[in-house]
């Protein structure tokens, strides 16, 4: 159980980067962007393809990020210049990317025709690069010794992965927080909030929407590139339902932490992504559930995360209303003897 949860936390932290991307579109830009299912795989496919072709994993990851950025920009162009509605722009880009992703992975095949899967079993990744340094430090042994003393076995094979993903995600979160407070970031937020207002302050909303979608999908592709290297394969089906998972993370996080400041909201999104993975892992361990049921479970999680806060809110309002009513009656009764 511990190792399963440990793995979920690692994955959750990687998926958090994707969730931050979804937060940028859905919440900040108020643009329901469905490109995510495609751009996640674009990131995974690009990174895997380049690693197999012998490029350094860091270069491969950077190129994957750029590819995601362009995919997002394309969705933005479809919407702003092509005047196609946001949902449809994303869906169009998503299915276009399906073919493009097959072609990207196909670059590793001799005939360069599409390919739906690239294994990375024996390839170097960002993670293996780090392990070669990490294994010399000896922290794994120390931490695992501690766990064994606490009676927790089996122990994780390494803590290095966790450390790498935590560092990366924390850096990304800090960058997102900083960006949303720059002049450009403020303009993007205002674009999601009140387009008419920001246009009257000489901002080109089209350009801001394109930029915002680009950055969002760059993060999504980054997350995809890391997942491919973590799981040691890229597959055309990796992104199916990704948008819902991203949304689930955002909503769970917001439900737990609220959205008072940018700092706390992005933190909520990151934690939401981890919590989602943990719920997922626990659900998978229930005997009568099958991996095939996961999409249904995800949908149920999102529905619950959307509905429960509403119900709680209503309950709270009713309670305070009842309380106020009771107080009113009390003062009325108290006032009678005087009258």
């Amino acid at each position: 159980m511990f190792t399963a949860l440990f793995g979920s936390v690692e994955q959750g932290i990687i998926y958090a980067i994707m969730a931050l991307g979804v937060y940028l579109t859905f919440r900040v830009l108020d643009f329901p962007d469905l490109t995510v299912d495609g751009s996640f795989v674009t990131g995974a496919a690009t990174a895997a393809m380049m690693i197999v072709l012998g490029y350094h994993p860091i270069i491969a990851t950077l190129v994957a990020i750029v590819a995601g950025f362009f995919a997002g920009c394309m969705t933005g162009l479809l919407h702003t210049k092509g005047k196609i509605n946001p949902l449809l722009s994303g869906i169009l880009m998503m299915i276009a990317l399906w073919s493009i992703n097959l072609r990207i992975m196909g670059l590793t095949a001799d005939n360069t025709i599409g390919r739906s899967n690239i294994p990375l079993l024996n390839e170097g990744t960002i993670f293996t690069q780090f392990y070669s340094f990490w294994s010399k430090v000896g922290i794994d042994d120390a931490l695992n010794g501690m766990l064994k003393n606490m009676g927790i076995t089996p122990v994780p094979s390494t803590w290095g992965t966790l450390l790498v993903v935590v560092i990366i995600t924390v850096i990304i979160k800090i960058i997102v927080d900083w960006f949303l407070k720059t002049e450009v970031g403020l303009a993007i937020r205002a674009t999601g909030d009140n387009k008419r207002m920001i246009r009257s302050f000489s901002a080109n909303t089209d350009r801001l929407i394109i930029l915002g979608l680009g950055i969002s999908n760059a993060l999504v592709a980054f997350s995809g590139a890391l997942i491919a290297q973590y799981a040691k394969y890229a597959d055309i089906g990796l992104g199916i339902g990704m948008i819902v998972i991203g949304l689930a993370s955002v909503i769970i996080g917001e439900a737990i932490f609220g959205t008072k400041t940018i700092f706390s909201t992005t933190l909520a999104v990151v934690v939401g992504a981890i919590v989602y993975r943990i719920i997922y892992a626990i659900a998978l361990r229930i005997d009568w559930l099958d991996t095939g049921d996961m999409k249904l479970i995800t949908a149920v999680i999102v529905i619950l995360a959307l509905v429960i806060p509403q119900v709680l809110n209503k309950r709270k309002q009713q309670k305070s209303k009842a309380k106020r009513l009771a107080e009113k009656q009390l003062t009325k009764q108290g006032g009678q003897p005087l009258a």
Partner: peptide, 29 residues
């Protein structure tokens, strides 16, 4: 409701007005 961004703070709204005729950069708002 039309002239301001409701989910942003007072100072952030003013910062948007402040960069009206300058190019918006990655400087802190």
């Amino acid at each position: 409701m039309a002239g301001t961004a409701p989910s942003m703070t007072i100072e952030e709204n003013i910062a948007i007005a402040y960069s009206r005729n300058a190019k918006r950069t990655l400087r802190r708002g």
